[in-house]
Simulated scan of single mutants.
Amino acid sequence: MTKQIAMKTPPVVSQQAWEAAREELLVKEKATLRAKDALAAERRRMPWMDVDKAYVFEGPNGRVSLLDLFEGRRQLIVYRAFFEPGVHGWPDHACRGCSLGADQVGHLAHLNARNTTLAYASRAPQADIVRLKKRMGWEMPWYTITDSFDKDFGVDEWHGHNVFIRDGDRVFRTYFINSRGDEAMGTVWSYLDATPLGRQEIWEDSPEGYPQTPLYSWWNWHDNYDAAPDKKWAEVSAAGEAAFRDKQD
Rank of each mutant, 00 (worst) to 15 (best):
L111Y: 03
A124E: 04
A242M: 00
V87K: 01
H107R: 06
L76D: 03
L215H: 01
P125R: 09
V56G: 02
G86K: 11
H110R: 07
A81V: 13
N61Q: 14
D50V: 11
P196H: 11
A243Y: 10
D230N: 11
D249V: 10
L197Y: 15
S190D: 06
Q15L: 06
A41Q: 04
I177A: 00
D37F: 07
E23T: 02
W142F: 13
I177G: 04
A234L: 13
H159D: 11
G59C: 13
R45H: 00
T195I: 07
M185I: 12
Q104K: 06
R123K: 11
L25A: 07
G97D: 04
D246E: 13
F70C: 14
R180W: 15
N220F: 00
V130R: 02
G209L: 03
A35T: 06
W203P: 02
G154Q: 10
F82Q: 06
A17I: 04
Y120D: 00
P229A: 04
R96Y: 03
P207D: 10
E157Q: 14
P229H: 12
D246C: 01
W142N: 14
G154Y: 14
E235S: 14
W189G: 01
G240Y: 12
R63K: 05
F244C: 00
R73T: 01
W189R: 14
R73N: 11
A238M: 15
E139R: 00
D103N: 06
V51L: 11
L69M: 08
E241W: 13
W48G: 05
Q16M: 05
E23Q: 10
T144A: 04
L39R: 08
T146E: 14
A20H: 04
A124R: 03
V78L: 01
V78T: 07
A20M: 04
T117F: 04
S179T: 05
G160S: 15
F149S: 09
L39E: 10
L192K: 06
V64M: 07
L197I: 08
P91K: 11
F164D: 05
Q4N: 15
D226Y: 07
V12C: 03
D246T: 15
L118R: 05
E241T: 05
R43T: 12
W158F: 10
I145H: 01
F176I: 02
T117L: 00
Y143Q: 08
H88A: 13
R131P: 09
N61A: 11
P196T: 09
